[in-house]
């Protein structure tokens, strides 16, 4: 359960940052993307994916705990 930071980068793209691994990558797909249910499976540009327990649309940036689903190759 790594602690990660979700933020919008200057171009407005949603990114996920894992401080312990210096991993900062774009989130290419989000399972749930509505105001009241937001999160689920987060797919990253490098192929890895994380699971965020769905929450109401948060104010970014925000530090959350997520579950690692698929490692990057």
């Amino acid at each position: 359960m790594p602690s990660v930071m979700l933020r919008k980068d200057p171009e407005g793209k949603l990114t996920l940052y894992v401080p312990k691994r210096d991993l900062e990558d774009e989130i290419v797909s989000l399972e749930f993307d509505s105001d009241e249910k937001w999160g689920g499976e987060l797919k990253l540009a490098d192929g890895s994916s994380y699971y965020l327990e769905p929450i109401a649309l948060p104010k970014l940036p925000m530090t959350v705990r997520v579950k690692r689903l698929v490692e990057a190759q």
Partner: peptide, 9 residues
């Protein structure tokens, strides 16, 4: 960068 990220949050 650590403190900048913290202040942003």
């Amino acid at each position: 960068n650590y403190i900048s990220r913290h202040m942003e949050e």
